[in-house]
């Protein structure tokens, strides 16, 4: 897809606000999907974890809206583009989900997202020329660092021996088709 940029293009403060907002919106959507999946598959505990994560991202999204002031970040989102390969940085990787996944695994999923977001904003700090945008990017980098650290703390608290995905399921899949 040579006619599409591989990632959103950030050159102004409003671009960055739109991208940062979009990242949070994608993250919320993804956590909600995971929560729904876990509910469908009767993993009530994990459903609650993902709902909590979605709520946390909601707070971040609200914060960005506040920072943006009059700028309509939701409307700007489509204009800055999206990720053509890979995924929106903070969006949890749906493909690494499993219906019997543990809380620690879910938190690792979240950690991976926060780390990708951190890397993305660090890259913006390096590449963007607009001083206001760079200032905001630095601020976002700091926030993402805090999120990464928070994830680490939570993982330490909940970590149990890693369950290998799929292999310990005592129930075989049910034929449906």
């Amino acid at each position: 897809m040579s006619d599409k940029a591989d990632a959103p293009s950030v050159s102004t403060l409003s671009d960055l606000l739109a991208v940062a907002y979009q990242i949070e919106v994608d993250a919320i959507e993804r956590y909600k999907m995971l929560a729904e999946q876990m509910e469908t598959h009767n993993n009530v505990e994990l459903a609650a974890v993902f709902r909590d994560l979605a709520r946390a991202e909601g707070i971040h999204a609200a914060e960005i809206r506040r920072l943006a002031g009059d700028v309509d970040v939701a409307a700007l989102g489509p204009e800055v583009g999206q990720w053509m390969t890979g995924d929106s940085p903070e969006a949890a990787d749906l493909s690494s989900a499993h219906y019997m996944m543990s809380r620690a695994e879910a938190l690792r999923m979240a950690l991976a997202g926060e780390e990708r977001a951190l890397a993305f904003f660090e890259e913006v700090v390096k590449s963007v020329e607009d001083p206001e945008a760079r200032e905001l990017a630095k601020q976002l980098v700091e926030e993402e660092r805090e999120h990464v650290e928070l994830c680490h703390q939570l993982i330490r608290r909940h970590d149990k021996p890693l369950r290998r995905l799929g292999v310990e399921d005592p129930d075989a899949p049910e034929p449906q088709g």
Binding site: E36, Q37, T40, H41, L94, S96, H98, Y99, M101, Q176
Partner: peptide
């Protein structure tokens, strides 16, 4: 309607 696909499904 919530999908019945396995979590992780493409």
């Amino acid at each position: 309607i919530a999908p019945i696909w396995c979590p992780g499904c493409g």
